[in-house]
């Protein structure tokens, strides 16, 4: 239907637009309300979460405190257990490993450490010794001459003094000994046997201590940890035996330090010490 009157038509149009405007305003209002509601709920949620987190925090603090209390309790308990009637393992006195056995082991180690000569070396060495002896005799003769020379025979004095100087400060090379070789071999064998024997005794006692759940000495635990690491019991036992043997051989009685002070000079003891340090550090690793 078409209005013929243009004013009327315009009025109609204005009327329609007004309606549209109103509906739009309503929709905006609605949207605003919705948004406000959403915002409110989100804020509430955030507040809730914050409260929950704070509560959790408190709880964690409480837990930490109780863990700390537990730790202290454990330490105290440990001490009480140690002080109490727990049976202790004794790895410090070894009546069954006597002085002769230890002496045999040490002699064997010395024999191993000693240098052995090849025949050629022995020959040159013997020649050097003979040369030294000859020089020594000459030098002694020269010094003998010094005791009778008149003071103004300067060139003779010089000559004899020089001859004497050839021997001063020189070391006589050590002579190779033929009997020594056989003796060394015997000492080595005896030492090996003694080591095997001592190791067996020590290992038996350690195994016994493990079997009966005995409390290890402080130095033992310091060095080898409270127990054998899982899956490595045999290696652990071997090292533990060596630690005890080391203490026995080198007369270490420190209650806290298993190996005592580190040896300064190179040699069998130093090698064993270093090896034990490395191996034990491996066993103490968590």
């Amino acid at each position: 239907m078409k209005n013929i009157d243009p004013v009327k038509a315009l009025d109609d149009k204005v009327e329609r637009l007004k309606k549209d405007l109103k509906s739009l305003g309503d929709r905006i209002d609605n949207a605003q309300t919705d948004a406000a509601q959403h915002k409110l709920s989100t804020t509430n949620q955030v507040r809730d979460t914050t409260r929950k987190i704070a509560k959790t925090n408190e709880r964690v603090t409480e837990l930490a405190e109780s863990v700390h209390r537990l730790e202290r309790l454990l330490v105290a308990l440990n001490r009480k257990v140690r002080a109490g009637e727990t049976r202790k393992a004794d790895f410090d006195t070894w009546p069954e490993i006597g002085k002769p056995l230890i002496a045999r082991i040490l002699a064997g180690q010395e024999a191993y450490a000693r240098k052995t000569f090849t025949p050629q070396e022995a020959k040159t060495r013997r020649r050097a010794v003979a040369e030294y002896d000859r020089q020594a005799h000459e030098a002694i003769d020269a010094a003998e001459a010094l005791t009778t020379l008149p003071p103004n025979a300067e060139s003779l004095w010089r000559k004899k003094y020089k001859q004497w100087q050839t021997i001063v400060g020189k070391q006589r090379p050590e002579a190779p000994d033929d009997n020594e070789h056989a003796g060394d071999a015997a000492a080595k064998t005896a030492g090996n046997e003694a080591v095997a024997q001592a190791r067996e005794l020590i290992r038996a006692r350690i195994e016994d201590a493990v079997a009966n759940d005995l409390l290890f000495p402080a130095w033992f635990e310091n060095m080898l940890g409270p127990a054998a690491p899982p899956g490595k019991a045999d290696d652990w036992l071997y090292t533990a035996t060596d630690v005890v043997l080391y203490r026995l051989l080198h007369d270490i009685t420190s209650p806290a330090s298993a190996l005592g002070t580190a040896p300064q000079e190179q040699g069998h003891r130093r090698t064993l010490h270093d090896r034990l340090i490395v191996e034990c550090a491996d066993y103490r690793k968590p």
Partner: peptide, 26 residues
Amino acid sequence: LQAAGPGSPDFPVLLAETAKEVEAVM
């Protein structure tokens, strides 16, 4: 020194002493 001989264990000590004596003579 001669009585001890070059092979004896106290030869180095005696040698050092004799060396001192020689210095004194010089």
